[in-house]
Every structure is written in C-alpha cells, then in structure tokens.
C-alpha cells in the first residue's frame, strides 16, 4: 500500500470499512462482556446448616444422606436448591460429601450391598473415603466446604458453604 495520495475511491472504501469496524467494536464490547461475565462474577459465600438435626447419631462407617438448602452464590436471585450431603464418619474422620459424580455429575448414592458409593449413570464407584475406585470417574467425590457447630447442649451440627472443596 502506498502512503502517497489516496484516491477518492480508496478513501470511500477504507472509510466505510473503518466505520463498519467501529460499529462492530462498539456492539461487541458489551456483548462479549455479558457473555463472559460468569468468568469474573464473584461467588458469594453463604453458610447453611445441614437439615435433619444433630449429627451425633450418625453411625460410624455408614454414609448418611442429609439435605441442605444451598443458596447459589451467583446469578440473579433464585430460591436455595436442596442438595445432598453424605455425612460420613469413618476412622475418626468426618466427611461431608457432595453426591455429584466427578464424571458427568450424576447423583451418587451409598450402596450398602457393595459398601461403595455408586453412580447410576455409567457405573462409577467410590470408596467410603470418597476415593474413585471403579468406572469412569476421574476424581474422588468432592466434599462441601464444611465446619461443625456445637450448641449449648453439646450437640454437633454440620454447616456447609455453597461451594465444594475441589472443583469437579
């Protein structure tokens, strides 16, 4: 491209192109921003108490499904969503498993006949510690970020935050 005289025709073509580019850019910036907004939207951390009362009676070695109404920490206002917390006591440890399979996120349940967590979708299996031991799941079961709360009577309650310990 010569930097010398620009012909009338060249001026019109380049001018049209530049203006069209400007229009496109003006529209793209907010549109792409809206599209990408979940990437930088902060996830508001909210704690809730797991339903079903204190966890003192949950037997050792038997993962027990409890429900927690978990509010979403992002997006427009929406009611809290009931989620499963598998409260598990094993060898002196307390686990608060989320029953989302690490494979394709189906609902995992404790299968007493196998003494394993089982996923109905593609047959994923997890040990009582959450370790993935069979089928397609690539990662252990994740736990809810959790803490134990002790009331005045000495009863233990489980509280969870609306996020998982490891991303699955």
């Amino acid at each position: 491209m010569s930097m010398g005289r620009v012909s009338r025709r060249q001026f019109l073509v380049r001018g049209t192109g530049a203006m069209a580019g400007l229009i496109t850019a003006m529209l793209s910036v907010p549109a792409v921003g809206l599209l990408l907004s979940p990437l930088w939207a902060a996830n508001k951390e909210i704690w809730v108490t797991v339903q079903g009362g204190p966890i003192d009676d949950i037997p050792e070695g038997l993962p027990t499904a409890r429900i927690a109404a978990v509010p979403l920490g992002f997006g427009p206002p929406a009611p809290a969503v009931n989620r499963v917390v598998y409260v598990t006591k094993y060898q002196g440890q307390l686990y608060a498993f989320c029953n989302i399979c690490s494979h394709m996120q189906c609902d995992v349940h404790w299968e007493p006949s196998l003494s394993l967590f089982e996923c109905p979708c593609h047959g994923g299996l997890y040990a009582i510690t959450g370790r993935n031991v069979g089928g397609p799941p690539p990662q252990p079961l994740s736990q809810w970020v959790h803490r134990v709360y002790v009331d005045a009577q000495g009863k233990h309650y489980l509280q969870i935050a609306n996020r998982l310990q490891e991303q699955i």
Binding site: P38, L39, G73, F74, G75, V81, L164, Q167
Partner: peptide, 17 residues
Amino acid sequence: GNGVRALWRGGDFVGPL
C-alpha cells in the same frame, strides 16, 4: 474447559442462568 462450562452454566453449578 472450566471456563466454557461456567459460561454456559452462568457459574460452577447449574442455576437460573
């Protein structure tokens, strides 16, 4: 991967978005 999923879901979990 995680970013694309978050864009579609509107966050890490399935929700209103």
